[in-house]
Simulated assay, not measured.
Amino acid sequence: MSKTTAATAALQKAGIAFDLHPYAYDPDAPRVGLQAAEALGVDPSQTFKTLMAEVDGKGVCVVVPSDGEVSMKKLAAHFKGKSAQMMKVPDAEKVTGFKVGGISPFGQRKTHPTAIDETAQLYDRIYINAGQRGLLLSIAPDDAAHVLNAGYVDVMAE
């Protein structure tokens, strides 16, 4: 497993501090983020998944707790759109340069408007995919928001 990915290279270039956390990736896990949290012994609400979606047909990135679901209505509203839907897997892999299960918000092939769920602010550090299956990184939420030019937003389904 490589410790340098497009995500870690982007953070290093930006001068952002982070720590790497490899874990045994289970491709058969029903929810990869929850499996990662369990493997690392981290609270699932502190482990964030990176999802690619489309708002009115335009790609966006949303970073949310692995134990929650995104409200497409709230996501569309945040990006001032009428409707939102999850991006199809092949499209998400193409625009990010990462494989599903290893998509990171950092170092994507194409920059997308990004939202981070507001609950990230509850933690000193959050865990996010480092751009490779079986590798998370921990980062200060404000550093993540800064480098992604992202706002904190309530995008979780009730």
Rank of each mutant, 00 (worst) to 15 (best):
S2D: 11
K3H: 11
T4I: 13
T8Q: 02
T8W: 01
T8R: 06
A10C: 05
Q12H: 09
K13W: 02
A14F: 08
A14M: 03
I16D: 03
F18G: 01
D19T: 12
D19F: 06
P22L: 02
A24Q: 12
Y25E: 01
Y25P: 03
D26G: 05
P27W: 11
A29C: 07
A29M: 04
P30Q: 12
R31N: 15
V32T: 15
G33Y: 01
G33C: 12
L34Y: 08
A36M: 07
E38Q: 15
A39G: 13
A39N: 11
G41C: 10
D43N: 15
D43I: 13
P44C: 11
S45N: 13
Q46D: 10
T47G: 06
K49D: 01
A53C: 14
V55R: 01
K58Q: 13
V62D: 09
V62C: 13
V63E: 00
V63W: 03
V63I: 13
V64N: 04
P65Y: 04
P65M: 07
G68P: 08
S71V: 08
K73R: 15
K73N: 14
H78S: 12
K80S: 15
G81F: 07
G81P: 03
K82S: 07
K82Y: 05
K82N: 12
S83C: 10
S83R: 15
K88M: 12
K88S: 11
K88W: 09
D91C: 06
D91F: 06
E93L: 05
K94N: 11
T96Y: 00
T96R: 04
G97N: 07
F98V: 00
F98P: 01
K99E: 10
K99N: 04
I103Q: 00
I103A: 02
P105L: 11
F106C: 10
F106W: 00
G107M: 00
G107Q: 05
Q108N: 06
Q108G: 03
T111I: 14
T114F: 02
D117L: 02
E118W: 10
T119C: 15
A120L: 09
A120R: 03
A120K: 07
Q121M: 13
Y123C: 04
Y123W: 15
R125H: 15
I126R: 01
Y127T: 02
I128S: 07
N129W: 08
G134E: 02
L137C: 09
S138E: 03
I139Q: 01
A140Q: 09
A140N: 07
A140W: 01
D142N: 12
D143H: 09
D143L: 03
A144M: 05
A144V: 05
A145G: 06
A145Y: 04
H146A: 15
H146Q: 14
V147P: 00
G151I: 12
Y152W: 13
D154A: 14
A157G: 08
E158R: 14
E158V: 14
